[in-house]
């Protein structure tokens, strides 16, 4: 497959935030690719920059955004040079949409959910109100929300239903890629499983691609074709899901995997000691070195990204 056929290719993406203490290097040189009709999971601990990555891709920058650079190729075309207006018209929501973190709790309490879901279609596709409503109905069928919920208010829906509504809102403009930021973290097991069924169906029936951002490895495997592990603003491992869940390469990924509690099987879950470094004062060399059981002298230098068998890992153990 040539590079241009790929749905999304991100190169050297950087997003810093300016604060009084100095720049927060939330996204610090991220590369990855995503093909059509595939789902990549971005895994990482709280605060490693996952949501910032999503914001950087969609150019949803907060006021204090600092350095913002790199390339984002969408179907071969670099969207970074686009003006804000072009970006808003052709990219945001039209091609890539997002279900933000805690979206289900961010619905406007005084507007009927049908109107909220239809809003992006009216704004980005320029459809009229009746057309929007019929689109909304279609989307509700896709995500499994009864059609008559259109005229309900958010507080009349359960958490699971609200999350489905939030997904419908990302879906209504028929984007080719949806970024899901922690779509199920606040939900209980059965609702999570239900939402993943919905996402799988969307992927299968509509051919949509997903970037799924989460810290929950077990549920992430419900959707993942590929896995990208993020640590302290950088991607430290990229792999296909099969080999990743079987045997992750990076010591951090291995630790993460070992920390997953399992229903069956007798292995005790383990945990990672220590805390990730501050994104303002990053250590020199490997950012995981402090917590890494396999650390050796070389780790004092910043590891290169090593590619083995189509898997990438940023760790000196594999050079």
């Amino acid at each position: 497959m040539t590079q241009n056929n790929r749905l999304l290719r991100i190169e050297e993406l950087v997003l810093y935030f300016n604060t009084r203490q100095g720049p927060v290097q939330a996204v610090d040189g991220v590369d990855f690719v995503l093909d059509h009709n595939r789902a990549v999971v971005v895994l990482g601990e709280s605060g490693c920059g996952k949501s910032s990555l999503a914001k950087a891709i969609l150019r949803l920058l907060p006021r204090n955004a600092g350095t913002y650079s790199g390339h984002i190729y969408l179907e071969g075309r670099d969207i970074m040079p686009l003006t804000e207006e072009e970006f808003r018209q052709n990219i945001r929501w039209a091609s890539i949409s997002m279900v933000p973190q805690a979206a289900m709790n961010a619905l406007n309490p005084v507007i009927r959910v049908g109107d909220q879901v239809g809003e992006p279609a009216i704004v980005h596709l320029g459809v009229d109100k009746t057309e929007a409503i019929s689109l909304v109905k279609k989307m509700f069928r896709h995500v499994g929300v009864p059609e008559d919920f259109i005229s309900r208010y958010p507080f009349e829906l359960s958490g699971g239903m609200r999350q489905r509504v939030a997904i419908a809102m990302a879906l209504v403009t028929s984007p080719i890629l949806i970024i899901l930021d922690e779509p199920t973290s606040a939900l209980d097991v059965l609702t999570q499983a239900n939402i993943f069924n919905v996402l799988k169906r969307l992927k299968k029936e509509l051919g949509i691609s997903f970037i799924l951002i989460t810290h929950d490895i077990a549920t992430s495997s419900e959707l993942a074709d590929d896995v990208a592990v993020m640590y302290a603003g950088q991607i430290v491992e990229v792999s296909d899901a099969y080999r990743f869940f079987d045997k992750p390469l990076h010591p951090y990924s291995q630790k993460l995997m070992a920390s997953v509690p399992r229903l069956h099987g007798d292995t005790e879950p383990d945990f990672i000691t220590g805390q990730p470094p501050s994104l303002i004062n990053l250590p020199k060399g490997c950012r995981f070195a402090d917590r890494c059981p396999a650390r050796f002298e070389k780790c004092a230098e910043d590891p290169l990204v090593i590619e083995t068998d189509d898997r990438k890992v940023k760790c000196w153990l594999y050079s």
Partner: peptide
């Protein structure tokens, strides 16, 4: 129990 996931690529 069915709803509870374990990390396994086959889930997808």
């Amino acid at each position: 129990l069915t709803g509870t996931s374990e990390p396994d690529a086959k889930n997808a």
